[in-house]
Design a binder for these strands. Structure first.
Lengths: 340, 340
DNA sequence: CTGTTAGCGCATTCAT
DNA sequence: ATGAATGCGCTAACAG
């Protein structure tokens, strides 16, 4: 069964030494073409499998990267992992995955596991619950390259990849304006979370850019849920000066808004325009289909890996300030904002 | 900077030997309580991190499991990975992830990478493209525990976890019957894929069980797409004896069917009932919401890990025939099948 | 270009 | 209960 042939076995077979076999196997420059082929042939014949564990121990490089996400069940992170893994395996890295389940405790355990496994680098999207960052500081202290994506923390001085929420919100609002909607509302998310604040700012920025008045009566702040979207619309409809379109901070909230509008027999997009943010899968299949902004999940994963890869291959001396990659969200304009 | 304290360092600090430190750290039975605490204290003080690589090399156990999936972008697999990782980390295993992207070539590369990393076990959902199974045979030949989930192959004699497609299809069809629909159609998937065939059989089984006639005119075979669903309905509506409900092999096809029905102003569920299979996220948010069967993704991941864990801890002598776990799909009956 | 030597960090056998 | 010795499989520095 498990043959477990080693380079020593190959060496014996060919009356040479493990060192030579190792060199041949790793395409070392100073090795004759002849011995290389002989070794490769013998390796194949004996069904040799390089033991990466031994190699890692000796070389100090594990060719492992750790990816810490809140949950693989969340679509967004699955897509990001897709981007990460694709590039990583192209570059000869294996990907370790760990879920924080939004708990700081698990987050810490995951980082611990990664460090113990001597990963060559770590990619993290932070848990919501996390407010104390000492565990990340410990990682930095070990010198292990670290990159944040999506859920980042700027104080930590770690390279990161994020989406340009301001620009996305600006773009969404601008789109509604250009489509001819007159009075555009916003359903905002919890403002202590930076990205939701950025989206609010993008909304305000677009209104200003087009010299439209800002009315805080049509800015509803709720949580991220279908229910919040419904409540927002109910609120808007009580107003004297009702809005005729809404930019919702997030697709699920937009969905709630659409449901409430339907209940009131307000037709979308004719009487009321709706646009969300995230490009969740369901948006393509609602009636009408939901306009939104795509978050570039796969590109985010790829960018995150690239940043990490740079860091891994960087002499520690080159200690410039950490790079921050900001991805543009991609507009996906569908029916819900197609003002006639 | 990276301290990289070893057990030897701890030993020196305490004027003892690496062996003692190792024993203390691993809760070896024959070690005095006093030295244990002294070692643990010193380990913490020196910021010691066990080197799993060295440990793996020495012990022969990597505490790594490899998970090979078609793509992390696909929701289903993300959820399964969630289930796997949760249990795995509870049991002290780290999870390596690799995507085949539905290509046999990558599948083989992934398995190779896993074997080289000396994983303690491998979990696989096969690529669609795969028809030649020698790479799996090679894995078996190494003695590395292997478990299939969802996309399995029975010839390989490998333990597996699947969903009971027959039962799910039976249940869906039965539901439509009990709701009072009279003439129930089926949109089937490519029949060379076993699970689709099982669903067709479940549909037929339910009709028989309730003494309903089987009419092949209302069994439409297509691929798995929204378009196929639309075409199926178009076909059904040309018939003289039109159906008044459909069990669709899969949610996206069901969605296509709903769209076509809407275009024909046929009201769902009053005039026509629809039920799908998979419990895709969008189903909750369509109008009307889509009845379906949940595939128990997280439970599948957990079951797969459990099976693998059993195998890992099994003496190779206990070579009974491989276990096969069959999960029951969970009915999720929503509006689209709510016959008045 | 190849062989020799050494050791990565740890767990385990055999002493004591 | 602890210490001494050994080697897992590989790579790398140094000789030749």
């Amino acid at each position: 069964m498990a043959s477990n042939v080693t380079i020593t076995d190959i060496a014996k077979e060919l009356n040479t030494t493990p060192a030579t076999v190792s060199r041949a196997l790793n395409n070392h420059p100073s090795i004759s073409e002849e011995t290389r082929t002989r070794v490769l042939e013998a390796a194949k014949r004996l069904n040799y499998r390089p033991n990466t564990i031994a190699s890692s121990l000796r070389s100090g490089k594990s060719h492992l990267i750790g990816v810490l996400i809140p949950s693989a069940k969340i679509n967004f992170f699955g897509s990001v992992v897709h981007g990460i893994e694709s590039l990583a395996s192209q570059h000869g890295y294996n990907v370790l995955i760990y879920q924080s389940n939004e708990k700081r405790e698990f987050e810490q355990k995951g980082l611990q596991a990664f460090l113990n496994a001597r990963v060559d680098g770590i990619l993290v999207s932070m848990a919501k619950e996390t407010h104390d960052y000492t565990h990340f500081r410990e990682v930095k202290a070990t010198g292990t390259p670290l990159v944040f994506f999506d859920r980042v923390n700027d104080d930590l001085n770690v390279p990161s990849v994020v989406i340009d929420d301001y620009k996305g919100a600006f773009c969404a609002t601008e789109h509604l304006i250009k489509k001819g909607y007159q009075r555009i509302a916003h359903i905002a998310g919890p403002q202590h979370i930076k990205l939701f604040n950025n989206r609010l700012r993008g909304y305000l920025g677009a209104l200003q850019a087009y010299n439209l008045p800002i009315d805080f009566n049509i800015i509803y702040t709720g949580d991220i849920s279908i229910e919040a979207g419904k409540r927002a619309v109910e609120h808007f409809l009580t107003l004297e000066k009702k809005p005729d379109a809404v930019f919702s901070v997030e697709d699920f909230t937009a969905l709630g808004a659409m449901k409430a509008l339907k209940e009131h027999d307000i037709s979308i997009p004719d009487q009321f325009g709706v646009i969300g943010f995230a490009n969740e899968e369901f948006g393509e299949h609602t009636t009408p289909s939901l306009s939104t902004l795509d978050q570039q999940t796969v590109a985010m994963g790829e960018a995150a890996f690239k940043l990490l890869f740079e860091q891994i291959n960087m002499k520690t001396s080159e200690n410039m300030q950490p790079r921050k990659i900001v991805l543009d969200p991609i507009p996906v304009f569908r029916q819900s904002s197609a003002h006639p």
